[in-house]
Design a protein around this nucleic acid. Structure first.
Length: 576
DNA sequence: GCCGTTTTCGGCCCGACTGTTTTCAGTCG
C-alpha cells in the first residue's frame, strides 16, 4: 500500500499529541514530533524505506517508530493510536492548541469536568465552573474565553498563518529601522529568527537589539505605525502585533551580550537544543546571557556570535544552516562546513519570460535589467505551444522569437542572450515542440504545467521521459509545490535524481519566493545524488529578476557551494 | 522514544511569563 511521507508524519504527530494527553514524559512526545518532521522533510519514500527495514537510518527514527510506520503501511493504522483515540476525543486535542492550554490542563479539564471539546470548554467557562478545579482561577477562565474567541475569529484554515520570507523580511526591516530611529545613535537592531535563517515562510518576526536604555526602546515599539498593539514591554524586550496580524517579538541585550542573544534568538530551536546538549557534555551551559563554565563558575559573555561558536570549539555556522541537520557535527571538524554559494557567484539567469508569452517586458528591457544585475548571460524562455491562458507561443512565433533574441543580442553590449523556451512536459512525457525546432534553441527548460494530480508512477515516468530527452537542458520547478498553498506532485524523487545524474540534465531551484522549488531538502539530496543544479529567477518582469536571492537562500539552506550550481560558470564553460 | 569520544541504561537546553500559589506547575519559544 502506498503511503505518503505527509500521511506518515500526520500519524506520528497525532500519536505524539495522544501520548502527551496520556501523560507520557516530554522526551517521548518530542521524539514523535521530531520524527514527524524528519519524515515530512525526507526526500525519499519513508514507507518504502521502512518496508526494507531501513527507516532507522533516518535521524530520530528507531526500531519502535519503524515498526509503527510498518503497521501503518500494512494495515492502515497504528494499534496504539486506536487505543488512545478511544480514550481521548479529538475535541480534546483541539483544546491543547489554544494558547495557555497544554496537555496537562486539557487532561485535567477532561477528567475533572468531562470537557471534551472547545464548545464544552466555553460552556464550562461561562458557567464559571473552571475556577472550581484546583490550580485554576478566574483569570484562567477569562483567558480561556479570549483564546476561544480568537480561535473562532480566525477564518477556517488560517490557523497559525505564516507569511512568505520576502514579506517577513520587508516588515522586519521596516520595524528595525523604525526602532533604530526611535532608539537613537547607540541602538543596534537586527532581524533574527527564521527570517534571518531565510526559511520558506515565517510565523512571527523576531528582532534582536542592543541598547543601554532597554526599557525606553521596548516602550518605543508602541510608537511604530505598523504596530497595532503591544502586549508586553519591559527591560528584556517587547511583544507586539502588526496591523496585518503578524506577531513581533523584540529581545534586548546589553551590548556585551549581543552575541549570546543573537545566537539564541536566531535559533532554530532544534539547533540550540543540540548545541546546548553537546555543550553540557563539555561542562558548559549556554543561554542567551552567556556561557557558564561548570569548572570555574565563570560566565563568558560574547559580543558576537562568532565568539559563541568559538568558545564551544565550533566553526562559525551561517544562520541558513542552523536547522540541526548535521551542521553542529560538521562545525566540530576542521573544514567540515561547506563554503556556501553567494548571490555574487551567480553569472547568469537561465529562466525568464517576455511579452511573447506571459511576461511584462520586452527582450531588450529584460536584457538591460539582467546586465544591471551584473550577469554575463540571460536566457529568454517564454512558455511553449500548449501553454494556454492566451500566452502560448506557436512554433511559428517561436521561430520569430529566436530571430528577435538574436537581433537583440547583436545590439546589446555586455551581456549574452540565449534563445530558449520553457517547454511544457505533456502528460505522456513528450514535449510540445518538434525536435527540429528545439534544436534551434540555445537552451531548453522543460516544466510540468498541467495534470498535477497524476499518480506517482505515471508522474515519475513523465518526468524521467523529459529528463531523458536529449534536447532538454534543465527541468523547471521540478516538484510544482507552492509554499503553503499546493503540495508537490507525487514523484519518486530518488528515481528522478538518478535519471538526472545519469543524463546530465540539470534540475532547477526556481527562485520565485512562492515556489523555491527544489526545496532545500530536495536540493541537498539532489546534489548528494550527483545531480547538477541551476538557480533561476523565472522572472516575468524586470523587477523580479531580483528574486534570484530567494533561490540562492534555498541553495544555502541546502548546503550548496558555487561549484554545485551550473550558472555560477562563465558562459563558455556552461555551454560545454 | 532515541541514543552513545563519560553511557546499551539513564540521561535527554535554558529561561521567561502567567496564574496560582506560599514555593510552584504549566506553557511557550
Amino acid at each position: 500500500m502506498h503511503l505518503s511521507n505527509a500521511a506518515i508524519a500526520d500519524a506520528l504527530e497525532e500519536l505524539g499529541d495522544l501520548y502527551e494527553l496520556d501523560g507520557a514524559i516530554v522526551h517521548r512526545v518530542l521524539a514523535y514530533r521530531t520524527a514527524a518532521k524528519t519524515v515530512r522533510e525526507a526526500s525519499v519514500s519513508v514507507s518504502a524505506l521502512a518496508g526494507e527495514g531501513r527507516a532507522t537510518e533516518l535521524a530520530g527514527i528507531g526500531k519502535t517508530l519503524q515498526e509503527k510506520i510498518q503497521a501503518l503501511a500494512q494495515t492502515g493504522s497504528i494499534p496504539a493510536a486506536e487505543r488512545l483515540r478511544a480514550q481521548f476525543p479529538p475535541g480534546l486535542v483541539e483544546i491543547t492548541r489554544l494558547p495557555g492550554l497544554g496537555p496537562k490542563r486539557a487532561r485535567l479539564l477532561h477528567s475533572e469536568l468531562g470537557i471534551d471539546s472547545p464548545q464544552a470548554l466555553r460552556e464550562a467557562a461561562l458557567a464559571q465552573r473552571l475556577r472550581g478545579v484546583r490550580g485554576l482561577g478566574p483569570k484562567f477562565e477569562a483567558s480561556v474565553l479570549v483564546a476561544l474567541e480568537e480561535m473562532e475569529a480566525r477564518p477556517a484554515g488560517s490557523h497559525g498563518a505564516r507569511v512568505l520570507l520576502p514579506r517577513a523580511i520587508e516588515i522586519g526591516e521596516v520595524l528595525a529601522s523604525g526602532l533604530r530611529e526611535l532608539g537613537g545613535a547607540d541602538t543596534y537592531v537586527q532581524l533574527a529568527g527564521s527570517a534571518r535563517r531565510q526559511a520558506d515562510s515565517v510565523k512571527d518576526i523576531d528582532l534582536v537589539a542592543a541598547s543601554t536604555r532597554p526599557l525606553e526602546l521596548a516602550e518605543s515599539v508602541a510608537r511604530l505605525e505598523e504596530i497595532e498593539r503591544v502586549s508586553s514591554a519591559g527591560t528584556a524586550g517587547a511583544k507586539a502585533r502588526t496591523h496585518s496580524g503578524i506577531g513581533v517579538d523584540l529581545r534586548i541585550a546589553a551590548p556585551g551580550q549581543l552575541g549570546n542573544l543573537l545566537q539564541h534568538f536566531t535559533g532554530s530551536g532544534a539547533h540550540n537544543a543540540t548545541l546546548r546538549e553537546a555543550a553540557v557534555r563539555r561542562g558548559l551551559h549556554v543561554s542567551e546571557y552567556g556561557i557558564l563554565d561548570d569548572a570555574t563558575q565563570a560566565v563568558d559573555e560574547c559580543t558576537s556570535e562568532r565568539e559563541v561558536y568559538e568558545r564551544l570549539g565550533l566553526a562559525y555556522i551561517e544562520p541558513e544552516l542552523r536547522e540541526d541537520r548535521g551542521e553542529l557535527q560538521a562545525a566540530a571538524r576542521p573544514d567540515g562546513l561547506p563554503t556556501l554559494i553567494e548571490l555574487g557567484d551567480i553569472r547568469g539567469d537561465l529562466h525568464s519570460h517576455t511579452i511573447a508569452s506571459d511576461g511584462h517586458n520586452t527582450i531588450s528591457e529584460m536584457a538591460e535589467a539582467a546586465r544591471e544585475h551584473g550577469y554575463e548571460y540571460l536566457a529568454i524562455t517564454d512558455h511553449s505551444a500548449s501553454h494556454g491562458f492566451g500566452n502560448d507561443v506557436s512554433p511559428e512565433q517561436l521561430r520569430r522569437q529566436i530571430e528577435l533574441v538574436h537581433e537583440a543580442n547583436a545590439q546589446i553590449e555586455g551581456i549574452e542572450l540565449l534563445a530558449g523556451s520553457e517547454v511544457n512536459v505533456l502528460p505522456d512525457g513528450s514535449l510540445d515542440y518538434e525536435d527540429e525546432l528545439l534544436e534551434r534553441l540555445d537552451w531548453v527548460v522543460a516544466s510540468v504545467h498541467t495534470s498535477f494530480g497524476m499518480g506517482e508512477r505515471e508522474m515519475t515516468a513523465r518526468m524521467i521521459a523529459a529528463i531523458e530527452h536529449p534536447l532538454v537542458d534543465a527541468i523547471g520547478h521540478p516538484t510544482g509545490r507552492l509554499i503553503g498553498r499546493r503540495e508537490p506532485y507525487a514523484l519518486d524523487l530518488d528515481a528522478v535524481f538518478a535519471a538526472a545524474a545519469r543524463t546530465g540534465t540539470l534540475l532547477e531551484i526556481n527562485a520565485n519566493p512562492d515556489r523555491r522549488d527544489l526545496s532545500e531538502i530536495n536540493a541537498r539530496a539532489a546534489v548528494e545524488a550527483g545531480v547538477g543544479l541551476v538557480i533561476d529567477s523565472d522572472a516575468h518582469r524586470t523587477a523580479t529578476l531580483a528574486n534570484m536571492r530567494w533561490g540562492v537562500a534555498t541553495a544555502r539552506r541546502a548546503w550548496l557551494t558555487a561549484a554545485d550550481v551550473a550558472n555560477t560558470r562563465p558562459l563558455g564553460e556552461l555551454r560545454k
